[in-house]
Amino acid sequence: MTRTKILEVNGLKQYFGSASNPIKAVDDISFYVYEGETLGLVGESGSGKSTTGRSIIRLYDVTGGDIYFKGQNIASIKSRKDLKHFNKDMQMIFQDPYASLNPRMTASEIITEGFDIHGMYKNKKERAEKVAELLEAVGLSRTHASRYAHEFSGGQRQRIGIARALSLDPSFIIADEPISALDVSIQAQVVNLLKKLQRERNLTYLFIAHDLSMVKYISDRIAVMYQGRIVEIGPADEIYNEPVHPYTKSLLSAVPQPDPLSERTRTRIPYVHETVKGDIVAHEVAPDHFVFATSEQLTRWQL
């Protein structure tokens, strides 16, 4: 079975600041996302993972490179109509459920804002029914529709954020650290919900996070970013069981596990960044598993 690539990113560059001395937040990265899968994007703060997500959803004008969504170059979308269609099809879930909901709007108003913009569900009754359906899909009750954001707990707010993202029936959702601000027990609830919705609606996720255990759990494939570049990308199990890039190894060795016996003996692998001569290219070390390195580095790392 050949899988369709719903999103393709080619040589994406996102620089900030002056042109003479730019801050290279994202520096020439390429990857793709298959339809219906979850691609996890991990890296430490400042590695460019959030910037990547924001560039894809057109929150920034890219410095260089192309982003193709469903075969269309998103930079070439010009007409209002096409742009509306794109905005409908790609949605975002934000990290902070406290800051990302307007405190002066009810849950229903937050969810239906997109309907107004896109002229959907104009019939009052139909609209109320849709809101109820969305609230129930994310595990809230239809009676919650008239409540304000502050009346909800953190986990419930994140559910409203998810309901808002789902309201326009998107096919692609960028989740930027959607669970980092939540408690452990609530994190599991939200992650289970995201997985359930993905199955039911055939959604594709770009899941941005720094919690590696959770990323491993939710993702089909994982891309590891370091200083604005992807250093390794591949199937989740491959990345965890057979990491090649020393940065991936270092990152994995730093994740504490809920296992005191292994924690007492665990040694962290420090990462020292090498400045290299020669071209860094993508090497396919296993099917769909790429490591970005020079040939010399790769031979050394695979020893």
Binding site: S185, I218, S219, P258
Partner: peptide, 23 residues
Amino acid sequence: GLLGSMPDLNNSSDELLRTIPGS
């Protein structure tokens, strides 16, 4: 509940996480 709701690196992604319902 706390132990079950945290995935470790060996969790298979086919199984749902154990959650603590409610708040």
